[in-house]
Amino acid sequence: MITIPLPSSSPLSNTISYSVSPLFEMAASLHTLAQPTPPERFNEWAQELLAQFQSARLIKDWEYFLPLFRYGIPDSFDPVHTKGVMAVDDQYEYFVTLPTESFIRSLEPVLEEWNRQHDIPNVVFDIQEDADYMKGRFSLFVSSYWQLFFEANWELIAPLFVREAEHIHDALHELPKCLCYLQEIKPEITYESETQVLVCPSQETNGGVQQLILYPSHFYAQKPSLTRKDLCAYLLYSFL
C-alpha cells in the first residue's frame, strides 16, 4: 500500500494536486485505440479513426507503433513533464530535445509487457539498430496524429477538464469532501485519523510518499491506475 500524510494543520492542496496535459491525453487516446476491443463508448470513435488512418496513409505507422500503447502509456508523456506542450511545434520540439536514452527507457515497461504476450515487434529491432531513427519516426507520427485528428478532439473535451479541475479544487477545501471524492475514483482509499495518513492500497508499489497527483483523463478507459515515482503517487483515472 501507499501512505500519504495529511496532517490537519496543513491545507490539503499542499499534498494533493492534479495535472492535465493535452499531449498525455493524446497518448491516452492512442492507448484506448490500441486495445483489441475498445470500451463501448469509444467503439464508433475507434472505427472512424482507423478508417481515417487508412485515408491519410497513417495505418502502417499506427500498426508499427501500436505495441508502444497496448499495455500502457509511455512515461515520456507524463502530464507533469508535458503540461505546457500543446501545439504541433511544441510537441516536435519536446521530442527532439528529449534525450534518446530517456525516451527509450520510457518505452521499456510497455514493450516488456508486449513481448511477454506477443512476438517481438519491428519497433524493438529498430530501437536496437538505430534508436535515433525510431525516435524521429515516432515524433513525426505523433505530430501528424495531433494535427490531422486529435487537435479538434482536444478543443471539444478541454472544457471537461476545466470542470473536473473545479471539482478537485472544491474537494480540497475539507477532508471529508476530499476523501469522498477520492473514494469515488478508488473506493479502497481510506484515511487513518489517528496517524493522519491517507492509505491507498496498491499491489505494485508500497511505502510512504509526500504527494498525491491526480491525472484525470477523458480517453483513458481502464481501471484507475495508482503508481509511485520517488516521493509522489500518481492516480490516473477516467472522469466520465
Rank of each mutant, 00 (worst) to 15 (best):
E44A: 09
P121C: 05
F103P: 01
L160V: 06
P11L: 00
E129I: 11
A46P: 03
R116L: 12
S193K: 15
K186A: 05
F161Q: 07
R228C: 13
L30Q: 07
P201E: 00
I73G: 01
P109H: 07
E151H: 11
S9H: 11
K223F: 02
L12R: 04
D170P: 08
S8W: 01
Q35G: 12
G136H: 08
L172T: 09
V124Q: 05
Y181Q: 07
S139P: 03
W62I: 06
A87Q: 15
R70G: 03
D130I: 09
L236K: 13
Q210N: 15
N43H: 10
L148T: 09
P5F: 12
Y234W: 10
L226I: 09
N153V: 01
V124E: 08
A131S: 14
M134W: 06
D170C: 14
F103K: 03
V142L: 08
L235C: 11
E63Y: 14
L6P: 09
E174G: 04
L50S: 07
K135W: 03
A131Q: 11
V96T: 15
D61A: 14
Y220G: 02
D90L: 08
P159A: 13
Q47H: 15
L98E: 10
N206T: 15
A233E: 00
C180A: 10
Y94C: 03
Q91S: 02
K177S: 13
Q117D: 06
L140T: 03
F150R: 03
